[in-house]
Amino acid sequence: MNLILIIMLAILLIPLYEAWQDDNIWQKVLAFSSIASKTSIMILIVSILRDDWMIGVVGVIILSVGNAALMLLAHIIKRLNDL
């Protein structure tokens, strides 16, 4: 399980690098959405690894709420660009 988590961390570095080097704001938002879902899955894995139900609940809540925040952010950025 530790190896799985390390591989996931390595994959997580790809969108991080993308958010670092790309100057288009939509590419950054894409990287953000990728990172948000990946981190919440990682939280789920950690909760299974430790057999801790509380962390798992937090992971699922972040999984659903983080996406809602992302949608609001996308709409706000769209309005900003319309100006």
């Binding site: 789920l44 699922v60 996406n67 949608m71 996308a74 709409h75 950025i77």
Partner: peptide, 22 residues
């Protein structure tokens, strides 16, 4: 199961919203 359902629904909707906004 809740995680799977929220993944399936939210990511689909999010894909549409991002495509529309961008």
């Amino acid at each position: 199961l809740l995680a799977i359902i929220s993944l399936a629904i939210w990511n689909t909707v999010l894909g549409y919203v991002l495509a529309y906004c961008s």
